[in-house]
């Protein structure tokens, strides 16, 4: 997995996840998001346009990050999940936990 970090207008930090978000690499995303959180960022969007698949560890990292960000008064949103990824969130009922936008642009709206 590789990921890009971009700051959008409105101080939203966007992470583009490329490839897989699984047990072997999930800590990279976690550390990068936590570094931004410690640096003062509070609005986060993780975009999955270029993501192949996620396993339970990847889902778990997103849950953990969401909790930590909420504790700091922030929000973590997700965007651009393909059909497979949406299925994962629906099966695990995590679609009830996250605000999931159809596109990156929609995810950035009203943040």
């Amino acid at each position: 997995m590789a990921f890009d970090v971009k700051r959008e207008t409105g101080e939203v930090v966007v992470f583009d996840v490329e490839g897989q978000l699984i047990v072997g690499n999930r800590q990279e995303l976690k550390q990068a998001v936590l570094a931004e959180l410690e640096g003062g960022a509070r609005k986060f969007l993780v975009d999955f346009t270029n993501t192949g698949y996620i396993d339970s560890s990847g889902l778990g990292v997103l849950v953990s990050l969401s909790k930590k960000i909420r504790e700091q008064g922030g929000e973590l949103r997700l965007s651009s999940l393909n059909e497979d990824l949406r299925t994962l969130f629906e099966l695990t009922k995590l679609d009830t936990l996250f605000r999931i936008a159809d596109s990156r642009e929609e995810g950035l709206q009203d943040f």
């Binding site: 396993d55 778990g60 995590l94």
Partner: peptide, 8 residues
Amino acid sequence: IMEEGGRG
């Protein structure tokens, strides 16, 4: 639902 693990 808010647990990090246990979904595998």
